[in-house]
Simulated assay, not measured.
Amino acid sequence: MATLNAKQLTALQKKGEPCRESLGNGLYFRVSNSATATFEVRYSIYGKRRFISLKKPYPALSLAEARLKAAEIKMMVKEGEDPLEHRKLDSVKPFKLLDALAEDWLKECDKRIKTSYIYRRVYQKDISPILGGIATTKIKPLDIRVVIKSIDQSGRPSIANDALNYLKHIFRHGIKLGIVETNPADAFQYADAGGIEVARQRALSIEEIKELFIVLTANKDQVTRENYLAIALLLSLACRKMELMAATWSEFDLDKGIWIIPKERTKTGVSIRVPLSTEVLGWLSELEIRSAGSLYIFPNRRRSKRAYVSPDTLNAAIAKLFKEDKFNFAHFTIHDLRRSAKTLLASLKVPPHISERCLNHKIKGVEGVYDQYDYFDERKEALFKISSLIAPYVN
């Protein structure tokens, strides 16, 4: 019996009468009441006869393409796979794009890693624009190389290493969920990205700190007063950047001169009381006025989902000044201010065990287990010395 050709199928569709016509090899042409025409494939598996509709309607799916699809389905059945069950699994499989898989991994990180916002920032800024819209199963090692090389060539080798590390974890997450079978990032090492990292040793001397504030004052059109005071506070309080930048006014008792950093925002997972000197209280009082009733000390000045200032704000401001050759000393990052504070504490003859607690470092070993004293008075004396030392340079 002669099979129908494309011209005859079009005529059946236009006629609009419901029908199902065999085209051979289990392929059928079906017209519904609405004159919509589709192809179906009949197959038998495990003693059951079943029909599966091909997704595209006719003529978007041509007769020749339908025959190829039918052959693929028959091969799947021959290998013991049920095409209908396979389609059900595909329909409930999330994370088709890398953005979706990465978001699921990032949410898992949010539950257990305090600094997961860093992972999210690197992904959104450096990975997503290149790979985020690509199907997870289609990403190849060459695509991974494009990402890490583009970051490294922008002069951020440590971020290139971080991005490679995050991509490895994202695809391992995908393997665990059955989304992908291989990890295209696993073949790469840090040598392929930003290279082996050496621990930073940069700390600003008191002379460099003096010049820092001179340059910031001279470029106040580029560095806001809020950012200027944030740098003064980071040096004086020896705290981590986001412990301060995400702080709310409810954490401060300005009358008693105490800031309580909640455990949710400390790296050690332990809340700490930070003593506030007269100089620091003065800077905070100015920031309270500038925050204009916000819950946050450093509210976001732009429209954003984040209520407080971006984690990149301070580094971006400093990086721009270095790019314009405004400083006459070696490059530094905002995190180096914390190391600078520790160096200042050492120069002021503050004992190491006190300076370590000023920085809220987790004390290792037996001492960390048994010494639960928070050294508040000793830390107060030490931190007051720093703020007194740098206050003359802060305008």
Rank of each mutant, 00 (worst) to 15 (best):
V280D: 08
G269T: 07
A292Y: 09
I272D: 02
E279N: 11
S294Y: 13
V270H: 10
P275D: 09
K263T: 01
S271I: 01
R265K: 13
K263C: 00
Y296T: 05
E279F: 14
L281Y: 05
S277C: 12
S291R: 07
K263N: 02
V270S: 05
E279I: 01
Y296N: 10
R273S: 07
L284Y: 06
S277W: 13
L276R: 11
V270Q: 07
L281N: 08
L295G: 03
S291L: 09
T266Y: 04
A292T: 10
L281S: 08
E288S: 11
I289N: 04
Y296F: 15
G269W: 04
G282E: 13
V270K: 13
L281R: 15
T268K: 01
E286K: 12
S277E: 10
T278P: 00
E288R: 15
T268N: 05
E264D: 15
A292H: 13
S291F: 11
E279P: 03
S285M: 08
L287P: 08
G293I: 09
V270A: 07
E264S: 13
L276H: 03
P275C: 07
R265S: 06
R290P: 00
T268A: 10
R265G: 09
R273G: 02
R265I: 01
R290H: 06
R273Y: 03
T266C: 05
T278Q: 14
R265Q: 08
L276T: 08
S291D: 08
V270F: 05
R290V: 01
S277F: 11
G269H: 04
S291K: 12
K263R: 11
P275N: 10
S285Q: 14
E279A: 13
T278F: 04
I289E: 13
V280E: 07
S291H: 12
P275G: 09
L287V: 04
K267L: 03
S285F: 02
A292C: 12
L281W: 03
V274S: 01
G293C: 12
L281G: 03
T278G: 02
S271D: 01
G282Q: 12
S294L: 12
T266P: 01
E286S: 10
E279W: 06
A292Q: 15
K267T: 03
P275Q: 07
S285V: 00
S271K: 14
R273H: 06
P275W: 09
T268S: 13
I272R: 02
P275A: 06
S277G: 10
T278L: 07
T278H: 09
L281A: 06
E264P: 01
E288W: 09
I289G: 06
E264M: 00
G269E: 04
V274I: 15
S294I: 12
L276G: 03
E288H: 15
S294N: 11
L281D: 03
A292W: 03
L287I: 06
K267P: 07
E264F: 00
W283D: 08
L295Y: 01
G269Y: 02
T266E: 03
E286T: 14
I289W: 01
T266Q: 07
